[in-house]
């Protein structure tokens, strides 16, 4: 554990909680891509199956349970409880365009051709692109609520902090995981355009809106 890893995890947790609270407090999931949230639930489910096979630490187990629980709670709020507010027409990204290629890649490029390892690899690749339906939705509507941009900021910050974590671990522990690093770099790059808009607009008190 190092400071980048810890702040990365906390940033990830902050993003998840911000989204849940936003939906709960406003009683609405307008502007939120349910498809991205389904992908994140799938990511956590396929990655954390090792909860059943190996114990790493109390911290590790608790965080995994919180992430999975929150992911399913978010999907429940969007598709069940506040379904009437879900903006399905603008959430038109085709999930199979992500899930199928990512599944194929996970079978081809992995550390070990075993069931759990392939699911872990699938989850790593899928996470790197899971935000695309949300970004696609924002580009379609041309705007995002400020609270939604805070969610995206913390979600992007989490993976950026993990990059520093991996640099740290390489130098001080000799540890590196090429699959996680490459996917993490891709994931972080996807947020760069958003980070730019967040700093130049949202942090200056303006709403995030894209030019027509």
């Amino acid at each position: 554990m190092n400071i980048f890893r810890l702040t990365g995890d906390l940033s990830h947790l902050a993003a998840i909680i911000i989204l849940l609270l936003k939906i709960w407090k406003t009683r609405s999931c307008a502007g939120i891509s349910g498809k991205s949230q389904i992908l994140f639930a799938l990511v956590f489910t396929t990655r954390y199956l090792d909860l059943l096979t190996s114990f790493i630490s109390f911290y590790n187990t608790i965080m995994k349970l919180i992430y999975i629980g929150c992911a399913y709670a978010t999907v429940y709020l969007i598709y069940m409880k506040f379904k009437a507010t879900y903006d399905g027409n603008h959430d038109s990204f085709r999930l199979e365009f992500l899930v199928v290629p990512v599944g194929g890649l996970a079978c081809l490029v992995n550390h070990d051709f075993s069931f759990l390892e392939i699911l872990w690899t699938f989850s790593i690749y899928l996470e790197s692109v899971a935000i695309l339906p949300q970004l696609f939705m924002i580009s379609k509507t041309g705007e995002a609520e400020t609270i939604t941009t805070h969610y995206l900021f913390f979600l992007g910050l989490y993976r950026a902090l993990y990059l520093f974590n991996w640099i740290w671990r390489f130098y001080f522990e000799g540890f590196f995981d090429m699959i996680a690093i490459v996917a993490g770099v891709v994931q972080t790059i996807l947020y760069c355009d958003f980070f730019y808009l967040y700093v130049t607009k949202v942090l200056k008190g303006k709403k995030l809106s894209l030019p027509a």
Binding site: D50, I56, N60, K64, H111, Y162, N165, D177, M178
Partner: peptide, 10 residues
Amino acid sequence: LKDEVGHDEL
């Protein structure tokens, strides 16, 4: 390169 007991990162 892979942890023997699974992946410690989240």
